[in-house]
């Protein structure tokens, strides 16, 4: 079993890095916010950032192999459900269920 002190320190270090990254930019940006360029970035960035995070989640997709089928099918179900019903919870649970079912049975590694 891993050492308790080490686990606590690991959590503390991670928390410190994380909070610094989230909070520090505000102190710098507060004065720059009024700028036209930053306003442009602030309105255009959100949609792009989510697209990048989605690609990041799929980065390890073993494309030529059959294993890739489970996440791709689950993604199709997620997107399909969301375009159809526009209910985020339904889309997430539907896609995840399909993925767990496929990855644990037919496509188990």
């Amino acid at each position: 079993m891993t050492d308790t002190r080490y686990l606590l320190l690991a959590a503390a270090v991670s928390a410190a890095v994380n909070w610094t990254l989230r909070a520090a930019p505000f102190t710098v940006l507060a004065s720059l916010r009024a700028g036209k360029t930053l306003q442009y970035l602030s309105t255009t960035m959100p949609s792009g950032i989510m697209v990048i995070l989605l690609v990041y989640c799929l980065r390890d997709l073993p494309l030529p192999q059959a294993h890739a089928f489970a996440p791709l099918a689950a993604l199709a179900v997620t997107v399909g459900l969301h375009l159809w019903r526009r209910n985020a919870l339904l889309s997430i649970i539907g896609g995840t269920t399909v993925h767990v079912a496929l990855a644990s049975t037919v496509f188990a590694s």
Binding site: S47, M50, V51, L53, L54, Y56, C57, L58, P71, A74, L75, T78, V79, H82, A88, S91, I92, G95, T96, H99, V100, A103
Partner: peptide, 11 residues
């Protein structure tokens, strides 16, 4: 996969 689905929905 819930995380992938979450970002798909957010995107």
């Amino acid at each position: 996969f819930a995380m992938t689905a979450l970002f798909a929905v957010l995107a």
